[in-house]
Design a protein around this nucleic acid. Structure first.
Lengths: 217, 217
DNA sequence: CCTACCGATCGGTAGG
DNA sequence: CCTACCGATCGGTAGG
C-alpha cells in the first residue's frame, strides 16, 4: 500500500521494529540449529531474548510464520557464508572446490551452533509434509544444482574428464559434505572435517584431467 | 535374582508382558522414525496402541527409558535388515557391496516409515548431550567400522588397490548411503536411490583392481 | 492395565 | 511491547 515516494528525507532508516524482527530471527536460527525447528518454541525464544512470549508472538502471528521466516533467515546466512564467498573463485573446477571448502569452513566455524542449519532441518522434516518440507526440498534441490552447475562448467573447460557423470559427481561430493557436517557435530573433532576434505579431494582427483600444481610426478 | 533352573516345564514361554513390551517398542520405532525421538510422546504412543498413557508409562518408568529402549529396538531391526543379510556374502569386496546394497534396500523397502532410523536420529541428537547422543555416536562409529573392515578385507584379498585409503573409501560410501536415504525420503522418488547405487558403484569401480564379470572391454 | 489427577509448558487470544 | 488468561498436551504420580 505504501508508495516508494519517500519525500525529501529519502529512504527511511530501518525502523526499530525491523531491527528487532531481525534480531529475533537471528536468535531463532541459533536455537533451531541445535533443538530443531520443532524445538523452537515461542516461550524458549522469548526467554532467550528476555521478552515476553506474546512480545515475540506479535511479530509473526503464528508459530508456522515464525518457523518459515527462521528458515528463510538461515538461508540468507547460508548464501552469505557459503555461496557468495565461493563465487569469488573462477567458474569451473576452482569454484567447485571453493563451494566444498566454503561449506566445510561454514560448518567448522560453527556459524550455526548446531552445524549446518539445513543438514539438520533436512533430516527433521524429510518424512513430513507441509510448507517447511517444501521449502527444504527446494533449498536442497538448489544446492545440488549449484554443485552440479559448477561441475558442468569444469567439464566444459576441460578441467574434468568429458565422460564424467556430473549428477553422480555432485551427489558424491554432496554426500561427503553432509556426512562431514554430521560427524563434526556428533564427534566434535576437527579431524573429521579433515577427512571430509580429503574425501572431496579424492573424488575430484579421480576425474581431474590435469594434475594440480604441486602434485608429485 | 531368578535362577536359570526352570523346573520340569523348561524355559517359560515369552510372557504376555514381554510380548506387549516388544509391541510397544515396535510402534515406538515407527513413530520416532517420522516424528523424531523427541516427537515420540507417551500420549501419542498410547493413542496409537489404543491404551492409556499410564499403561504405556508403566512399562518404562520414565520417558528417557522409553527413548533408550526404542533406539535399541531400532538397532536390532538394523542388524536384522542390513548387517545380517550382508554377512551372507563372501568377506571382502562382495560383502562391502552387499552392505551398501542392503542399506539402500532397507531404505527403499521403508522398513521404517521415515527412512533409516539412525540417519534421522543422528541429525536430531548430534548437537545435544546425554545418553541418547552417546548411544547414537557409538552406533555410528560401529557402522563406519563395519564398512571399513569390509574394505580392509577386500584390500587384503587384492580386490581393491593396495594404496587405497580405507578410511576415505568408507567415508565416501557412507556419505552416499546417507544422502541416498535423505533424498529418498525428501523427494519420495525411487530414482534417487538408483543415483545412490550408481554413486557407490562408481566409487568402488575407481579402486577395484579387476573388472567385475560383465564389464565391457 | 485403568481413572484421575499434578504442575509445567505448549500455541494462541484478549485487552491494554 | 506488557499481563493475564484459554484449552490442550507434556511427563509423571497416586491409588486401585
Amino acid at each position: 500500500m505504501a508508495t516508494h515516494a519517500g519525500g525529501s528525507l529519502g529512504r527511511r532508516r530501518r525502523s526499530d521494529g525491523e531491527r528487532t524482527h531481525a534480531a529475533i530471527l537471528e536468535r531463532a536460527t541459533q536455537i533451531a540449529s541445535v533443538e530443531g525447528i520443532d524445538g523452537l518454541t515461542l516461550g524458549r525464544l522469548a526467554d532467550a531474548l528476555g521478552v515476553s512470549k506474546s512480545g515475540v508472538y506479535a511479530h509473526f502471528g503464528s508459530k508456522q510464520q515464525l518457523q518459515l521466516e527462521t528458515v528463510q533467515a538461515a538461508g540468507a546466512v547460508f548464501e552469505r557464508e557459503v555461496l557468495i564467498p565461493a563465487r569469488r573463485s573462477a567458474a569451473g573446477l576452482s569454484r567447485l572446490e571453493a563451494l566444498c571448502e566454503a561449506y566445510l569452513s561454514y560448518v567448522e566455524r560453527l556459524v550455526f551452533p548446531g552445524g549446518c542449519f539445513f543438514a539438520g532441518l533436512l533430516a527433521e522434516v524429510d518424512a513430513r509434509t507441509g510448507p517447511i518440507h517444501d521449502l527444504v526440498r527446494e533449498g536442497e534441490r538448489q544446492w545440488s544444482r549449484t554443485l552440479q552447475e559448477a561441475a558442468a562448467e569444469a567439464q566444459h573447460r576441460g578441467e574434468i574428464a568429458g565422460d564424467t557423470d556430473l549428477e553422480l559427481l555432485g551427489f558424491q561430493l554432496q554426500g561427503c559434505l553432509e556426512l562431514g557436517n554430521y560427524h563434526f557435530v556428533l564427534y566434535r573433532e576437527a579431524r573429521v572435517l579433515e577427512r571430509a576434505r580429503l574425501a572431496v579431494t579424492g573424488i575430484l582427483g579421480a576425474v581431474r584431467t590435469a594434475p594440480a600444481r604441486g602434485d608429485s610426478a
